[in-house]
Design a protein around this nucleic acid. Structure first.
Lengths: 326, 326
DNA sequence: GTGAAAGCGCTAACAT
DNA sequence: ATGTTAGCGCTTTCAC
């Protein structure tokens, strides 16, 4: 930095100011400073900058799983916001089958001293996350966590419209491939149960992990039963794809033999060969809004936790139709 | 840190040492220090640690695209290595349609002063990347970049075995849906051309972006031609899926009407409904090896750039068969 | 708009 | 095995 100051013929402090569009630097000197820095290939040392400044512009981000595109969509939303707000990210990644990695990712955000972290897809129990209070300011995405800010989607509603869609088509034997019963992710399961009971139908839940192959394996037996379901509603798109796999593997057809409804509306559901009816989580918007909230929080940490709820919508495509005649 | 030292009844320096499994702390005091730190919810401030230490254990990582699972696989490999080597990551993400974002991600690694960065899927031209010399020590993954270390796969070979597989099945009209001609990504294209010419066949190249939808749109017209190809070899799995989409949209079948070979062997190619023949890039292993190389480089920065080449293998599944009889 | 100077929370060299 | 101390490269007063 000193080199740049000397080269541009200004003081050290001015260079520092110029780099953060700060108040008190004339437009022309600012331009000159940035130009000489560019020319010298100088990039400010963010490590030193962050140590020195109380209030830095870095946001932490946690994404549960790089193998599920819904997190890529959320990240795009966050990045979109960060660009507008001039923020930088410290990104960390977890895993659907390792609480260990999730803890490590979160701890690493604590060690990085980000003033706010946006966490998408937290899987740890509420009780464990409570331990981060006071050490990490969290904005949870897609899951409400007691005591923390959150940007969530109304999962009960999403499940309800999915099930009602199937019922209105005439389905009665509707199975729900539910996620493991994790804190904060019970909404879809509840929405399903309520919608079924409201229609006087018997809920049939099967708990399933997050992977396509696991859904394939669990859906198989369901399809082989004499009284097989006429529709399956899954907790996410990946597992819906697994159900499609199971259907195809048996030489059955969607939607003639089985209707399938997914959840998330990831891009993998759109292609003509798939054309999956699904509930749109609006992941990009969730990410975008979480970034806004995080910036707000970093500017004003006081106040009660805020929970913003988005409303999901049903995207009807070709994987749902009236059940086969009996 | 001072608080922990006081609480544990030791000096400040000892706490610092204890946290980095350093030499000179007795097992018992180390345990006691870590225990009290844990109890107080203390996590060392990495920002300060990194500023103070010349040689820190942080690796930069750049991933081109979160929407392509091949990068998730590579990342898993890197993380696997980092765990063993006790390294932490600074992760940044680019985009297949924005050199701007890629530059920003790389610059952000410079600003973070990582001593080595592992970059998977670089898309910027060689000339521009050359500008990072001296400012960022790069280990490029999946692409060779002049002047930098790299862990690559033999793309010429991969394309060759893909094409030879098709030829051996009897195909003669084989189209290659090639990637945009970017520095460092010409191997698959070249392998295709050579293999075709060697067999006395006329190469037919169509340049295509990285998305499934773009492949769908470009493959359509090919399939509608009177003398349509009997096989299509694509530059990655995503575009192969796009080709499958185009085939299904026309009511045609794979492999009866068209054989398709992808590239990467991402998990999306495996399900029964897809069952795509593809070239395995071994992304996990590439990532794993890149991490090793990065650590080596950070420990000994001297020496000429190293390029390690992996050999891809063909995974024959159900999307390839003999061409339809004429 | 400038220049000097006090940290930020650690690490690492040196003492003990 | 433990204590002391000078930085790391910035940001941020503060008096000019």
């Amino acid at each position: 930095m000193a080199d740049v100051a000397r080269e541009a013929g200004v003081s050290l402090a001015l260079v520092s100011l110029a780099f953060r569009d700060a108040y008190g630097v004339s437009k022309s000197t600012r331009a000159r400073i940035l130009a000489t820095a560019e020319e010298m290939g100088y990039q400010p040392n963010r490590v030193a900058a962050r140590l020195a400044s109380k209030t830095d512009r870095t946001l932490g981000v946690f994404l549960l799983d790089l193998h599920n595109e819904v997190f890529a969509d959320m990240f795009d939303g966050m990045r979109d916001g960060a660009r507008e707000n001039g923020r930088e990210f410290v990104l960390t990644v977890g895993s659907v089958n390792s609480g260990e990695l999730e803890r490590h990712a979160l701890d690493s955000l604590v060690r990085a001293r980000v003033d706010v972290a946006i966490a998408a897809g937290l899987l740890l129990p509420d009780a464990e996350l409570a331990g981060y209070r006071g050490r990490l300011r969290l904005v949870s995405v897609a899951r409400a966590v007691p005591g923390f800010d959150a940007v969530v989607s109304d999962n009960v509603h999403g499940a309800t419209i999915a099930v009602e869609h199937l019922i209105s088509l005439g389905h009665r034997r509707i199975v729900h491939l539910a996620s493991p019963p994790t804190d904060g992710y019970l909404g879809r399961r509840q929405g399903y149960i309520r919608a079924m009971e409201k229609a006087g139908l018997a809920p049939h839940l099967v708990t399933c992990g997050y992977s396509r192959t696991e859904a394939l394996e669990l859906a198989g037996p369901l399809l082989d039963k004499p009284e097989r379901p006429t529709a399956i509603f899954t907790h996410n798109d990946q597992t819906a794809l697994g159900v499609l796999d199971a259907v195809h593997a048996r030489g059955l057809r969607v939607p003639e033999d089985l209707s399938v409804v997914g959840y998330d509306n990831t891009s993998a559901t759109k292609p003509p060969g798939i054309d999956l009816t699904t509930v749109d989580l609006h992941p990009f918007d969730l990410g975008r809004r979480a970034e806004d909230l995080a910036v707000q929080r970093s500017e004003d940490p006081s106040g009660e936790p805020v929970v913003e709820t988005f409303t999901p919508s049903l995207v009807v495509r070709a994987s749902t139709a009236a059940p086969p005649a009996l």
